[in-house]
Design a protein around this nucleic acid. Structure first.
Lengths: 235, 235
DNA sequence: CATTGTTTGAATCATCCGTTTGACATGGCG
DNA sequence: CGCCATGTCAAACGGATGATTCAAACAATG
């Protein structure tokens, strides 16, 4: 067993791809802090030095992992927001559609990865819980833009909710989403039981209704309050 | 400078207390994974070996930090739950009071610690995001009991919400709470502005209203569904 | 074929980690 | 006084970490 088969060398470094995928898997599963370069190179069947060669450093690899999916996800979110803004120009968009524009792209991007849905969501959750200065600059700026647009949309859709109140509600919503992304497994057994389950897609619908309800709490009896500072977000 | 003042030795080890407090502060600020024993002993002005002497190991110190506040917090929560169950025996308790019983004790315990409100909440958030097998046994069992009681109370208060749906909504609520505990700082500037601010107490009220609204989403039009599995919680 | 730029591999670096050890100081008690 | 329990301390342990080095292997190009 184990004939010395000819080692096939791929051009333009197949190892780099292997490293990225092994890193994604391990980071998603165990978290960025606790996975070592050696864990990754072992899983990718690559040399210890390869990470530093291909990505400059451990940090560089993390940045690559983060960017790979967050960039397209955020672009998709931005696209949806712009559709929303155009279609409801002047009028206020329905709360559910606003939230959907931010939440749906997250799980919609699963297909583009080699990871299972569970691990992909976990990776996203891990990214959202990163210290904000740990994000690559491009992603960080994307997030700022998105955060701003979301704040504006929600403020327009909920004119009777005071800005500070809205900021906190957005904070709660973000937490609900991140927690669901990170810990879906603990509930999937209970939810799916034995069924095949489209799983995360269904959860998004639940989440949207939950978030919308929380956001517009007590809105029908309220009085319009004066404008305050703009709310920010980590969503 | 630096007269060789008589070193005052405290009986029954004052160092142990210093270690605990330094550990709390560092763990709350930076997270359990990234703070080393040496970081702690340096902050506590103690020897590297002192952690292992007083707590057996790094894990032992973490367990001590976790237990110190989680035990009384959970006892307070349990007490509130029992008051609730007695006062509303037969009838269904109002959603807001149920949530309050679980949320209020968290921030109410700040006074018993040397930590700032911000750091104390952060420590709690960190504990809730721990892998569940990282918790001391006593605390883990407390949590199980509480989770069960909460699930029962909510299921009774929301008979029209399907069990799986309720489980997810509880999950969302937990996420909102944990995220708010961990990242209050990013919003406090915006919320407090320049005022003195009782801060976290006010946030709890916001949170309770948000959570209640999310939990009873669409409840008035719903039809009672058949009973399913009992919901669990990480709250 | 020879040259060039790219990619691997094993060995090594300095540093940090949690823990252990043994020497040493202290204070109470018979 | 000796004796022992309780803490403290510097030093060292083995191991793991991220990063670097340099020679060898490789593909592509002229």
């Amino acid at each position: 067993m184990g004939l010395p088969m000819r080692e096939i060398k791929f051009p333009q470094s197949d190892a780099k791809r292997r490293l990225l995928e092994a890193a994604e898997q391990l980071f998603a599963d165990k978290g960025f802090e606790v996975v070592s370069v050696r864990d990754i190179t072992k899983a990718a069947e690559a040399n210890v030095a390869s990470v530093n060669y291909h990505f400059g450093s451990r940090e560089g690899l993390i940045a690559a992992v983060v960017t790979r999916y967050m960039l397209p996800v955020n672009e998709e979110r931005l696209a949806r927001v712009e559709v929303l803004e155009k279609r409801w120009a002047g009028k206020t968009a329905p709360l559910e559609e606003i939230i959907e524009a931010f939440a749906r792209p997250l799980v919609g991007m699963v297909r583009k990865s080699e990871l299972s849905e569970r691990l992909f969501c976990r990776l996203l959750g891990r990214i959202f819980t990163m210290p904000k200065d740990g994000l690559p600059l491009v992603v960080e700026e994307q997030m700022k833009v998105l955060s701003d647009r979301l704040g504006r949309l929600l403020a327009k859709a909920l004119p009777t909710v005071a800005p500070e109140e809205l900021a906190w509600r957005m904070h709660f919503v973000a937490g609900a989403m991140i927690h669901a992304l990170l810990n879906q497994d603990v509930l999937h057994r209970l939810t799916n039981g034995a069924s095949g389950a489209p799983s995360m897609e269904a959860v998004v619908s639940r989440f949207i209704r939950f978030a919308a309800a929380g956001l517009r709490e007590g809105v029908e009896l309220a009085v319009v309050e004066p404008k305050g500072p703009q709310a920010t977000f980590d969503f």
